Computed example of a mutant assay.
Amino acid sequence: MIMPSGRTHDRITYLSLPPLAVITYILTRQWEWLLWFSAAYLFSGLMFGPDLDIYSIQYKRWGMIRWVWFPYQSCLKHRSFFSHGLIVGTVIRIIYIFIIVLIVAVFVIAIAQFIWGFNWNWREVAETNFQLLKNQYLGEALITFIGLELGAMSHSISDIVVSHFKQSQKKPKKRRYKRKKK
């Protein structure tokens, strides 16, 4: 299937942000939420989108730490429901990157505890952060997720639309029939 290039996806991301930002501000009337949405949308469109399942421009933009996406790529088929699916793809990428950050944090904190000998209670930290998110930052979390999802949706939808358009523009091949030898 024919898909848009990475540059086409980037252009779509850049060109669709201004109208989406205006709509976000009209709906929320909050500059802070507009910034959360815009940052998440750009991040998703440029670095955190569905094409992290292949060697793509989004993947290359992770630079020296792009290796964190190797397991993701090996587990998912390109353009599968789990990478390009609406909502599902974004949720899977968020969970995946959360697990990677958590693994790194465990090692960093273990080393820091060994060196400086401070106490660290994972349960307290998790409960405190969950309560903080739930009670004070739920709106920011939701608008960030919406920005991430719309950035990914712009990618998946443009794949579908451009692929369909390019497919419809192809000239049908003339069939050549071979004569059977007698």
Rank of each mutant, 00 (worst) to 15 (best):
K77G: 01
L133A: 14
D51M: 10
W36M: 13
I157K: 01
R61K: 15
F130V: 06
R79A: 13
W67P: 00
I87M: 10
G139I: 06
L34E: 04
F43I: 13
A141C: 09
L76N: 12
F70I: 14
G151H: 02
F165K: 11
F118E: 02
Q136L: 05
A110D: 03
H84Q: 09
N121K: 03
L138S: 01
A105R: 10
Y55I: 05
G151T: 05
W69K: 08
I97T: 14
V108D: 06
P50N: 12
H164I: 04
S44P: 04
L86M: 12
A39M: 11
C75K: 09
Q58H: 11
V106Q: 03
Y96C: 08
L46N: 05
K170Y: 01
W33A: 01
L133I: 08
K170F: 01
S163Q: 00
L76W: 02
Q167V: 02
F118Q: 07
L35R: 03
W122I: 09
H84W: 10
M64F: 15
N121Q: 04
A110T: 12
K171F: 06
V68I: 15
F107E: 06
V88L: 15
F114D: 11
W116E: 11
Y55A: 13
L138M: 13
F114H: 13
Y137I: 07
L142M: 04
A141D: 02
I157V: 15
S56Q: 00
V125W: 08
L34M: 15
V104E: 08
V162R: 07
I54P: 00
L132A: 06
I97F: 14
F43A: 14
I146H: 03
Q131M: 08
I57N: 11
V104S: 11
W69H: 02
F114V: 02
K166N: 12
L142H: 01
N135P: 00
L148N: 08
R66T: 08
L42Q: 03
I103W: 03
I111V: 14
T90V: 12
Q113Y: 00
S74A: 07
L142A: 09
W116G: 05
L42H: 01
Q167D: 14
W122C: 05
G85N: 04
F70R: 11
H155K: 10
V104M: 13
Q58V: 00
G117M: 11
V88C: 10
I157P: 06
Y72I: 03
F114M: 11
L35Q: 09
M153V: 15
S163G: 15
L86P: 02
S158W: 09
H84L: 05
A110F: 04
K60I: 03
M64C: 05
F48K: 01
M64W: 14
W33M: 12
W69C: 04
A112T: 08
F37Q: 02
I111Q: 06
P71S: 08
L138P: 01
C75R: 03
D53R: 01
V104C: 11
S56C: 04
Q169C: 11
L86T: 13
D51S: 05
S168T: 14
F130I: 10
R93F: 04
N135V: 00
K171A: 15
F81I: 14
S154K: 06
G45L: 07
S158F: 13
